[in-house]
Structures are given as structure tokens and as C-alpha cells.
């Protein structure tokens, strides 16, 4: 398989971006964009289509198996994990365009600064002051919520998110849904207020985020659980704390 990779590069945050095209050939039919980038970076004397030397491409990666969220980038105009994007998908066109995520400041080449994702969790206060307690049986909500990779693909497609803005999006709301109905009343009130302000109120509920999530997290289900804890429960305050079958 032979494919042209059109990579949007940039030496550092302050320099001008430029497009570099590199031909990549492999007989591994399962080869991914991550595989191509690794091989280009570890190859000797790699040149681009114009014969110019290719300096090492800066990109973030770790697990290479869709479990760590490091390698999110825009591939063929969609935010995806590079280790989940098979080159064969683009074989018919003969090329694939690879760019950094656009919602975050670029550090260099394909590496972006996703600090906003982690800062949002801190601002929102995603942690438990007290014990969460042992559930009677496997807590599927907690399991699903804990799967978030913090990759940022959902934020890339979200019409309402921008880094440093007031709307936090699903990369914050998903982890929050692990805890929101598990907290002591006071902390629950706080996190619920934050959730309403930073997620619920600004969310258009188109669920573009769900469709793009590379971990296929059931965002809709988690949000309806969070909404019932943080939004609707306010209306039923008299019923007191409702939780997911947790033994206290």
C-alpha cells in the first residue's frame, strides 16, 4: 500500500504552519496513521515528495492501541486517534491530510496543549470529599464514565467549546458523571451547580460528541444520569439523595 501523507507542520507555536507531503509505503495492510508517523520518525534519510529532508515530526502517542487518548489529531478532516485510523481507509484517494486538533494551542507539528481539558476538571471539582462506598453490584455508570480518554475529540467537534471558554463539554462531563450522584449532599450541590453552569446550560444536545468519541462512550446515557442527579433532582429535592444502589 502506498499513500501520500499531507501533514500540516509547524516548528513551534510562533512559527508559520506549512504542509509537508511524504510518500509512505508499507505491506502491513492494518497500518495506521500512528504506524506511519512512527516509521517516518525512525527512518533514516526520509525525504518528502520534493526531495527535502523530513525533520522528526512532533506528535504525542503512548499506548498505540486506542486506550490512552494521546494521539488525537485531525485526520481526513475528522478528529480521531492516529492509532485507530487505518491507512487502508484512504487508499482509494491515494492521500490523507493530517493536522493538529484545532481547538487547542499548537505546541509543534501535531502536538497540541490540551491543558484546558485537565483544568476544566479541576475547576469543576471532579473528586469526592468523602468515601464513595461499595456498590452492591458492578456499577455500570461508574465503569462507563471511567473510560474517558481525555483525548479531546468530542471538544473538537463541539460547536460550543473553545479552550479557555466557559463551556467545558463532554471531556469534563463524562468523568464528572462517575461521581455526581455519589457525593455527600454539600459537595453534590456544588458539583451539580458547576455541571449546570459549565455543561448543561450551554449544551445544544446535538450529540455530535457522542458520534465522534473514539472510545464509543455512551455519552447520552451518562448525561441523562447526570441530568437526573444535577438538574431534575433539584425539583425533587424533597426526595433527598438518590444514588446508584450504593450501600452506605
Amino acid at each position: 500500500m502506498k499513500l501520500r501523507l499531507d501533514i500540516l507542520r509547524r516548528k513551534n507555536a510562533d512559527s508559520e504552519p506549512y504542509l509537508q507531503s511524504i510518500m509512505f509505503e508499507t505491506d502491513n495492510e492494518n497500518a495506521t496513521v500512528a504506524f506511519a508517523l512512527t516509521n517516518i520518525c525512525s527512518g533514516e534519510n526520509v525525504t518528502d515528495v520534493e526531495g527535502k529532508p523530513v525533520s522528526p515530526i512532533v506528535w504525542e502517542h503512548s499506548c498505540l492501541q486506542k486506550k490512552c487518548g494521546a494521539c488525537a489529531m485531525v485526520i481526513g478532516s475528522r478528529p480521531r486517534l492516529a492509532c485507530d485510523a487505518r491507512l487502508a481507509e484512504f487508499a482509494a484517494e491515494g492521500f490523507v491530510r493530517i493536522e493538529p486538533l484545532k481547538k487547542f494551542p499548537v505546541v509543534a507539528d501535531l502536538m497540541v496543549d490540551r491543558s484546558a481539558v485537565f483544568d476544566a476538571l479541576k475547576t469543576l471539582g471532579v473528586w469526592a470529599n468523602g468515601e464513595v462506598g461499595a456498590p452492591d453490584r458492578t456499577d455500570e455508570t461508574a465503569y462507563e464514565a471511567s473510560r474517558c480518554l481525555q483525548c479531546g475529540c468530542c471538544l473538537e467537534v463541539c460547536p460550543n467549546f473553545y479552550a479557555g471558554g466557559d463551556f467545558f463539554g463532554m471531556a469534563a462531563a463524562v468523568p464528572a458523571s462517575r461521581l455526581i450522584d455519589q457525593l455527600d449532599p454539600e459537595q453534590r450541590k456544588e458539583l451539580s451547580a458547576g455541571y449546570r453552569k459549565k455543561v448543561y446550560n450551554g449544551c445544544g444536545k446535538s450529540l455530535a460528541c457522542r458520534d465522534i468519541c473514539p472510545a464509543h462512550i455512551d455519552i447520552e446515557k451518562l448525561m441523562s444520569a447526570s441530568n437526573s442527579a444535577a438538574v431534575w433532582s433539584r425539583l425533587h429535592a424533597l426526595f433527598g439523595r438518590k444514588n446508584r444502589g450504593v450501600k452506605k
Binding site: A128, V132, A134, R137, D139, A142, S146
Partner: peptide, 14 residues
């Protein structure tokens, strides 16, 4: 770890 809410497979609280 369970008290921190790590989502282990559980039965009857164990």
C-alpha cells in the same frame, strides 16, 4: 480503591 469508587466487578457489596 473500592472506597474511592474504582469500578470493580462487585456482588453483594464485595
Amino acid at each position: 480503591l473500592i472506597s474511592l469508587g474504582a469500578a470493580f466487578n462487585m456482588a453483594d457489596g464485595k
